[in-house]
Write a protein that binds this DNA or RNA. Structure first.
Lengths: 342, 342
DNA sequence: GTTAGCACTCAACTAAGAGGAGTGCTAATA
DNA sequence: TATTAGCACTCCTCTTAGTTGAGTGCTAAC
């Protein structure tokens, strides 16, 4: 168990390092207002804290730097979210100024403002389209041999895909098909469409329409292909500002990671509520060993969830980011819940 | 006018520098097979070429580096596109293997393969949606007060937007509206929709439907907002590989530029056919002073155009890139023209 | 006209030394 | 007994000086 003085010193060191990105020495700490003891005392405590694994040195005679364990302790026990002011709040509010109806636009804007306010990179996951349910299905023929299939979901999302019409496919064939599909598919979630199509609809269609197989196939790929929720980025190059990323390779690895959908998705915790912090190697990805990721979720309507991640150096301003995320997740949830129904 | 020998030496220097990114000395050149004269002779010629502005030195006793004027001359007079082999061709062909109907997918794939084959960054502009014409207009109500407007274009593109329904808007109101809009808008290009709506349709609608104004407004913003053609990127971080971009600031500037739609669009020449090369400061953007941009266009159907840009260092492998672009533009044009009609 | 020879230049690397921030330990102090 | 002043020691960082080598420009010989 740490003594009160050790807690105070640990906090001071982490705060200082987060601010200046330089190893902190005993003298530096002793000059702070809240610290009342001498550098020598601090040095003793620092040696203890280092033995306990909370601090590290970059070389024998350097100041101390928080270890991952140190950050973890700081985040778990010493963090009181704060550091946002009324101007920040105002800027967050500006996301909702436009009275926009579209979820996508609001999320995009949130990503930008979050990255601006934190000066880190933000990633926002939109609603999981796969869980939307079909509201209306339609087909618009473009020429004698091509057409567009369109699915509108209960949340107003539109999924569409071009496909080839079988030769000699008539307008009445098309109409029959659309009717059958609407009868059977309305209310089905996009993730269940394949099963439904293959299990029930295919046989029915085959009785009424020629060469339904090809068509069903096109439809299946249409809904499978967009299987992940949309991803929005803010401040992709913000990490260039951080002194710890003045190394091209690190930056590159992270940028590359952000281009890979699957990698990005794995940054997010399974849907738990609250704010989650992963520090350095707590992230599974090797690329992220110098990064911390703070994630949280927000609600979209009753049964949908979106997610937010902020990526920064382990020396991240946890206080501020946590406070900001808390505000923005509440605002997003509120904006997407009220005045919105099926 | 340059002598034959000067041409030969200039070409050898540019080729060598493109390959190794190191200032080239007279000895280095003299060792090449096609060069039959001594280093001393070459030094004399190099001094002349420098006086003429085709070469530069990094310091008094360094080897020579092509100047922008040197590259320009090389590109204009010494370039015979080549350097692609059957494996490259094969890889390009693989873009079209899937028998995909969708333009977007093919373009996306092209961007990736181009960046892979060149090891530079590729940017592809899809068709200019604004010039598509309306094929079908429809509205799908989601709840008592929201609905989605959907426009399908002649090329199979789908544009959609949510909007609020005025209170007490009935199903028959909606039907009337959709009918009127289809009557008036089918065949109109997206860029002309606003005028058409405001000039003709509004008055007609006002006679038949209550609170048409709000609705029209939503529709106008829906079509205005997606005013640019879609942009697809390949190998965004490829430039990290180039030794001239081992400087964080340069990389950052270019990455930031690529996040700005308007900047990206201004990289493209006004629609001229053929392949265009802009070297270093020939680009208007300051961020691009160390880059060359090679652009070309391809056809999508009869009246649409897409564009391709490759961004690399001024020390770009022009030969190879030009050859690759030539192949891919022809293949894209072919793929998008045959079997495709209104 | 071409080339060998040579003095000269300058970036890049290495080595040595000075300065300074910060530590750990010891002994004095409250 | 807990705290602190004092001091020797460590090691990073910056500067300076010297060395090496690739490459040039010029001159004189071929």
């Amino acid at each position: 168990m740490l003594t009160n003085r050790q807690l105070q010193i640990l906090q001071a060191i982490v705060d200082d390092f987060i601010m200046f990105a330089q190893p902190v020495g005993s003298r530096q700490i002793s000059k702070k207002q809240e610290i009342t003891f001498s550098p020598a005392t601090i040095r003793n405590e620092m040696a203890d804290l280092e033995e306990l694994g909370f601090l590290e040195k970059t070389h024998t005679s350097s100041g101390r730097v928080p270890s991952e364990k140190g950050y973890r302790f700081y985040v778990d026990h010493l963090l009181n979210p704060q550091g946002i002011n009324s101007r920040d709040i105002q800027q967050i509010q500006s996301i909702f100024n436009d009275r926009l109806v579209e979820v996508e636009h609001i999320i995009r804007k949130s990503a930008n403002i979050l990255s601006e306010l934190t000066s880190y990179t933000s990633i926002l996951l939109g609603p999981d389209v796969q869980r939307h349910r079909v509201k209306r299905f339609s087909i618009v023929p473009l020429s004698s041999d091509t057409a567009v299939a369109i699915i509108v979901t209960n949340n107003g999302h539109v999924e569409n895909r071009m496909f080839s019409l079988p030769p000699n496919f008539t307008a009445s064939d098309l109409e029959k098909m659309v009717n059958i599909l609407n009868e059977r598919l309305v209310g089905v979630s996009l993730e269940d469409i394949h099963k439904k199509l293959e299990a029930e609809v295919l046989t029915v269609l085959q009785q009424h329409v020629r060469s339904a197989d090809d068509f069903i196939h096109a439809l299946v790929t249409a809904t499978m292909h967009n299987s992940e929720s949309k991803i929005f980025y803010g401040g992709k190059t913000n990490m260039f500002n951080q002194p710890e990323f003045h190394d091209l390779n690190k930056v590159r690895m992270i940028l590359d990671l952000m281009e890979t959908t699957s990698q990005v998705q794995s940054l997010f915790q399974p849907n738990e509520s609250g704010i989650h912090i992963r520090i350095g190697s707590e992230n599974k990805q090797l690329e992220m060993e110098n990064c911390s990721v703070i994630t949280t979720t927000y609600s979209i309507g009753e049964d949908q969830q979106g997610a937010i991640a902020i990526i920064g150096p382990t020396r991240m301003d946890y206080k501020r980011v946590v406070a900001l995320l808390d505000v923005i997740r509440m605002d997003l949830t509120q904006a997407f819940t009220k005045n919105r129904s099926d």
